[in-house]
């Protein structure tokens, strides 16, 4: 069975932000160690990340998104505004 693991962004123990400390090549097993911050978009919860992806795939058409998601246009716009607000906060941290 092919399961897609969700990328954890917060520590399950203390809920602090997680950082990337190791990356490896699947082909030659070369590993890179260090302390890298997650890209800004990856710091979003999965549902908001999916929303951003859908926004991108519909070329930013909120009307099209509203029809696809079966919700009203202002609800989509409000969700986008919430994500923008969250990203701005994350950016300033």
């Amino acid at each position: 069975m092919n399961t897609k693991n969700k990328l954890p962004i917060l520590c399950p123990s203390c809920e602090n932000e997680l950082r990337v400390t190791q990356l490896s090549c699947e082909k030659c097993q070369t590993g890179v160690s260090g302390s890298f911050a997650l890209p800004l978009l990856l710091k979003l919860p999965q549902d908001e990340l999916d929303f951003v992806l859908q926004f991108f795939m519909t070329s930013g058409s909120l009307k099209q998104m509203a029809q696809q998601m079966n919700i009203s246009y202002p609800t989509v716009r409000n969700k986008l505004d919430d994500i923008i607000e969250r990203l701005q906060k994350l950016k300033n941290e």
Binding site: A66, Q67, I71, S72, Y73, T75
Partner: peptide, 10 residues
């Protein structure tokens, strides 16, 4: 209703 219905339906 304002979250679920499209503006033309409302």
């Amino acid at each position: 209703p304002f979250e679920k219905f499209q503006e033309k339906q409302l």
